[in-house]
Design a protein around this nucleic acid. Structure first.
Lengths: 135, 135
DNA sequence: GTATGTGCAAACTTTTTGCACTTCG
DNA sequence: CGAAGTGCAAAAAGTTTGCACATAC
């Protein structure tokens, strides 16, 4: 079971209650902001300093445990999904949803394999699909 | 010649020196931030209040005279290019460059014409291509 | 003349920083 | 024990707001 501890250990990071809580928050919430994470942890159990949260999130991003995603509106969110994927952005709010589409990825990879961009070396391609969510 | 005045007039916006300077700044600079625009105008000629710049930029975005672009790093920039295009994002800095590719746009349009996303109505698709610029 | 736009300064939001203290391993 | 992590509070960065005054039309 203790997957979270393993993830931290695998990256050579010290296992602290704060780090565990933050990772849990990211997995339980949907693309939370730093503030969402702080509120979640405080309502769950323990207190946590805002500075700590920002520092830990930075550490996690640098160690590829999570990804930083920026909303169409400029809001910074965090994503625990590491496999290649795109995002659906609400044109009204700053809500985002993961969009996984392997077929599309193949098309894009094939396309950019033959069509090079001059003076630019591609590392990662992500689609930002803006529109309306129909609930 | 007086294209800038015409653009403002066409949108029913009052023509003021501040608005003209801001539009000029956006056309002369490459994806400037609000701060880049302020510095540019101040160094060129007249003074301008920061509040005014933010208000004018908002007005321009709402009236489709410019677009707001958010860097991979979360920096807010403004883009005077209105035709459909994508952006190349530097993985190191917050630099961005326009990327126009009609062939790619056709492929994407065709792809999403047949492949619908459930509970989501697409309004606009933009690629965020992250990588290295080779100067 | 009047609706609209601008300047200014204060306030707000989000994030960063430095340093003493604490904890993990 | 020592290196790494955390709490705290102050400050930085970027943006918004309200209101008196100025300007475009």
């Amino acid at each position: 079971m203790n997957k979270i501890n393993d993830k931290l250990r695998d990256k050579g990071l010290k296992i602290t209650p704060q780090r565990i809580s933050i990772l849990e928050a990211i997995y339980n919430l949907n693309h939370p902001t730093a503030d969402d994470i702080i509120k979640y942890i405080r309502q769950q159990h323990s207190n946590i300093a805002t500075g700590t949260v920002y520092k830990v999130l930075d550490t996690f991003v640098k160690n590829d445990l999570i990804k930083k995603v920026i909303t169409d509106k400029g809001v910074v969110k965090y994503d625990g999904l590491l496999t290649n994927h795109h995002h659906l952005h609400s044109s009204k709010s700053d809500e985002i949803k993961d969009y996984i589409d392997e077929e599309l990825d193949h098309i894009l990879t094939a396309y950019f394999k033959k069509k090079k961009i001059t003076n630019f070396e591609i590392e990662e391609i992500s689609l930002q699909i803006k529109g309306k969510f129909n609930k």
